[in-house]
């Protein structure tokens, strides 16, 4: 998964290695929302996702001179972000089996659809976000990397530190669990219509 062409990305990496701030800006603007969205949906806490995003990009610039010329920036950034999340989780002994209904991407959980749900997405998106939140993080990360970010399973396997076969199995289980949690048997009505 290269967010731009491989040659363009190689040129960006070369410029970043030599300390070019414009090259950093191009990478930062391209990847920041994607890494943040990944971290936000993985951690389910905005403040945590913000802190982990900071650390991900700070690590990129600290390691800039040591980057290999053929570095796949997307895979590099998602790997660092994902590893930081798991380190955070281990350090904070975060309980992940909290009742999903009490969790929200936002600091204060609201019962039922939040104003954000109503304004931005409608019920399908709201159900999807809630279903994602109800999944274990191992399932969330594969769904986000492969389906949301369009990574090849082999790339996602590298990011997650598992074999391609293990990732494929995990992805199949995650898809099934997501659909179960979305409760698609229940009709979807759109808010405001």
């Amino acid at each position: 998964m290269h967010w731009m062409g491989v040659d363009d990305e190689a040129e960006l990496v070369a410029r970043l290695r030599s300390g070019d701030a414009d090259a950093f800006d191009a990478i930062y603007d391209g990847y920041r929302p994607r890494i943040f969205g990944f971290l936000l949906r993985l951690s389910r806490r905005r403040t945590v996702a913000e802190d982990l995003l900071d650390e991900t990009f700070l690590r990129l610039v600290r390691h800039a001179p040591a980057l290999r010329p053929d570095t796949n920036l997307g895979a590099w950034l998602f790997t660092v972000a994902r590893n930081l999340y798991w380190s955070y989780r281990r350090a904070s002994a975060l309980e992940d089996d909290v009742e999903p209904a009490t969790l929200s991407l936002w600091p204060i959980a609201a019962p039922g659809p939040s104003p954000f749900d109503l304004v931005v997405g409608g019920e399908l998106e709201a159900r999807l976000e809630r279903a994602l939140q109800a999944l274990p993080p191992q399932h969330r990360e594969v769904l986000l990397l492969v389906i949301r970010e369009g990574m090849r399973p082999s790339e996602a396997a590298d990011v997650c530190g598992v074999t391609a076969e293990a990732l494929r199995q995990r992805l199949a289980r995650a898809r099934a669990a997501l659909i179960r949690h979305m409760d698609l048997e229940r009709p979807i009505r759109r808010y405001g219509t």
């Binding site: 969205g37 998106e125 949301r148």
Partner: peptide, 14 residues
């Protein structure tokens, strides 16, 4: 539906 929904989730940013 689930896959399309995941791809179309609104972007997030700081």
């Amino acid at each position: 539906i689930a896959s399309a929904g995941l791809r179309l989730l609104p972007p997030e940013d700081v």
